[in-house]
Design a binder for these strands. Sequence first.
DNA 1: GTAGGGTTAG
Length: 575
Amino acid sequence: MSESITILHLLQSCSSLQSLHQIHARMIKSQLDHSPSFASKLVATAARLHAPTLAISILLRSPDPLPDPFAHNSIINSFLHSPSSSPLLSLLFFSLFPIPSPNSHTFPPLLKAAALSHSLHLGSALHASLLKLSLHSHLHCHTALLSFYASCGDSLSARKLFDRSPHRNNVAVWNAIISGFVKHGRSHDALEFFRLLLLYTEPDEITFIIVLAACSHLGALNVVRWIENALKGMINVKIGTALVDAFSKCGSVEDARRVFDGMPERNVMTWTVMIQGLAMFGYGEEAIALFEEMVEVGVRPDDVTFIGVFYACSHSGLVDEGRRMFDRMIKCFRIAPKMEHYGCLVDLLGRAGLLEEALRLIENMPFEPTPAIWGSLLSACRKTPENLQVIEYVANRLMEIEPENDATYVLLSNIYADNDQWDGVARVRALMKERGIWKTPGCSSVEVDGTIHEFTVGDQSHPCAVEINEMLEEIDCKVRDLGHVVDTTKVLLDIEEGEKKNALMLHSEKLALAFALIATAAPSSIRIMKNIRICSDCHSVMKLASKAYGREIIVRDRNRFHKFTNGNCSCLDFW
DNA sequence: GTAGGGTTAG
């Protein structure tokens, strides 16, 4: 075998930088390093081994310029994928080392880097280059461009490209735009596009995974069921895990468990989503039991699994179990606790009223406490409003670090309201006004006959707005008939003076409830999903409405479910 | 001829 063929084979199978150096020495000895095609392969091999800077140094030492873009493309890719590198470096390399003749392989990774660094400027410049080179319609460049605009939130440009796309029979183009919608909280649009996709082409596994994420945000249980049916018999670990997760997040832990039990193969993610699903619904003991089963069958839990485990403990008030699990995570599984784990533990202790222990934990953490840690203590404090001194201390710390974060103000205001301290509420609201803080509007969704209806606070844009308002009044009357006085004060505080009457129960989840009551007949249960950061105070209304209308009402507030039946709530949280 | 697009839990 000639030396050059041997070196080609060696480069192909090279798996360490040490052997790369040896091959390089051999190339110099046989003077092959002067050949542009060999130099190019050497550079590409260094890039493949996640050594982009070594690749650049070989590139610079190569005697002749390399006309083939292969070596440059490999370095761009290497900067994008090397664990210790930043995507911006691939863009920097591209601008500092111009490629003599860039091709269709050059741009997709650069566009991905621009998307990852949220740089609309750099991406638009790449778009211009693509147009200049007439590469803009090339399938992979076109998809990458579309994905770039969609994931940067420039949906107008994304839509423009998509509407004129010559590749609308290609599923990747659809996946790019649908995933862009999901990333920007427009899951409703994502589902609309999914329906449209079915008219043009066949969805693939990636489509289903993206769409299942959209369903999870919206609580589109029937769409998840439809997908499960469409996939009959073709459920692998990935799609099965996504299904289990989507079913749990849509409020059907039973369906999640059914899919989980039927899976022939499960990995750490599958177990983790099932544990989380049980935890979300308040089945803390079951979640812990499943964790033990997981360990017993030999699946090693990771750091995310423990988030689910702590979540289960805090949701079900299992304080000792939580403390034990924290020790076990460190000692038995050698997992170093991250900030998120401390956050969970702080939440658990805070909810149990052990504020001093929670504060001690924060002080003894090996990291500087983040706003998220203080925030998790503050929201946990809501369970024990009698500790107002600690609450005010924590809230003040938070307002110092993050004066622009609306969640802190709203939380503190709600805690004062829980304690009937209306002067406190007024103080916080005045502070918000003074500092120009805007509350992020909450958004709730409800599925009726497979269609998702979305509502924001005070939303009057629904076609049935008139009926919804009448229904809200009716709910109010029925609830009063039950002999309970609805405390609407907290709701009214959000609204300016003079609008009190109309403002009654205009929180987004109440609008969703009123619509669902009009649109569905008893005894069907009502599932309302709320994707926001802050809890609002609709709990008592939901409780009473479940009794007045004989309905089961399930409300998801972020990742916690509250189940209301016949005037009772099955969750331990907060209330 | 090598490589390139859409993707998985808190």
